[in-house]
Nucleic acid binder design. Sequence first.
DNA 1: GAGGGATGTTAATGCTCACTAACAACGGTG
DNA 2: CACCGTTGTTAGTGAGCATTAACATCCCTC
Lengths: 195, 195
Amino acid sequence: MAARAVGLRTAGRRVAILGAAARLFAAHGYRGVTIDDLGRAVGTTGPALYRHFPGKEALLGAVLVDISERLAERGRDLVSGSDDPGEALTALLRGHIAFALDEPDLITVHDRELGNLTAEDRRRVRRLQRGYVEEWVGVLARLRPDTPASTLRASVHAAFGLLNSTPHSRGSLSREAMADLLLRMGAAALLADDT
Amino acid sequence: MAARAVGLRTAGRRVAILGAAARLFAAHGYRGVTIDDLGRAVGTTGPALYRHFPGKEALLGAVLVDISERLAERGRDLVSGSDDPGEALTALLRGHIAFALDEPDLITVHDRELGNLTAEDRRRVRRLQRGYVEEWVGVLARLRPDTPASTLRASVHAAFGLLNSTPHSRGSLSREAMADLLLRMGAAALLADDT
DNA sequence: GAGGGATGTTAATGCTCACTAACAACGGTG
DNA sequence: CACCGTTGTTAGTGAGCATTAACATCCCTC
C-alpha cells in the first residue's frame, strides 16, 4: 500500500503545534503571535506549519473546537453519571475547576479569541458552548425549580466568569487551596436564591 | 496672549476619540483596530488622530489609566463613606456592578488589553488596580477576620471575574434584574466561609 | 538501492498598517 | 483684514507578516 496519507511521525508534531499555539495565543493573543513564533516554538521554521495546517486561522479553530468538545463531552458524562442534581452540580464544578487549573491557557484562549475564528468554526464552537451551558442550566433548574431559565442561564455565565478567572488570579495559593476556594464560591454563587 | 496651547474645540474631539477607542478595542481587540477605523469612527481620517495623541499605544494607555483611576477613586470613596464593613461591601458591589453594566466596553478592554500597554502605562494601571483590590480585601478582612489575606485576595479576583462577565453574558435580563442577580451572587461568593 | 511521498528550508510576493510629509483651510487675535 | 497656530487632508514610506514558490532531504516501500 502507498504510504498513508499522513505520516505517523506527523501526529506528534501536530499535537506539539496545537500546544504551542494555545500557550502563545494565551500569552500574546491571536494577532500577537506570528507564524514564525509558532514554528520556532516547535523547533522548525514558520512555513513548515503549512504542512500540517492550512493556515493560522485553521490552527486557532482546531484549538478552540478541541477545548469546546472536551468541555461539552465531560459535562455530559458528569451529569449522566450523577444520581441527584446536587451531586451533579458538584461534579460539574469540580470538573470545570480542574480544567481551569490544569489548562489555564486553553481557558484563556477560549474566553478571548472567539472573534478571530472563521464563521463556520465560530458556529461550531458556539453550538458546543451552548450545549455545555444547557447542561449546567438543566442541573440548576432541578435545584431551583422556581427560578426562570433566563436567570439561571445568566447565573451560569457569571459562574463561568468566576471559575475562569483563575488563570489571571491564583496568587500564592496552592492548587488544592484554590480548587477548594473556587468550589465553595461557585456553589454559593449558583445557589444564592432570589428572595 | 497667543491662542492657548490646545484649542478649546479640541476637548470634545479628545473625548470622542477615547470613547470610540474603548468601543472599538472592546469589539475587535487593540490589534484588530486600525488608526483609520478610529478616525472614521469620529468623522475624520486616520492620521488626524496624531493631532490629539502621539500614537495608538498612547490612546490605549489613556483609556486604561482613566478607567483604573475612576474605579480606584470610586472604591476609596465608597469605603470611606460607609459606616460598617457590611455596608461597605454592598456599596463596593453595587458600584462595581453599575460600572460593569453601564460601561461594558471599558470593563472588557480593562480585562484584556493590559499586555499591549507601554511598560510605564502598565505599571501605572497595575498600581491602581492593586489599590482597588486592596480596598476590597480590607473590607473583607473585617468581615472574615480568620481568613488569611492571600485567600481573600484570590476571592476578590474571582468575584471580579464574576462581575466582569456581564458584558459577555447578560442575556434577555433587564439591567435591574441583572444588577440584582450579580449583587446576590457576588455577596454569596465573597462571604462563602471556609469551613 | 531506486523511487516517491512527506516534511522541511530559504527566498520571494503582496498586503496591511502605523506613522510622517507636504500642503490646505479655518478661525480667533492683533 | 492679515497673521499664525490649530486641525485636517491626501499621498507617501517602510516595516511586519501570512502565504506561496522552488528547491532539498529524509525515510519507507518495493
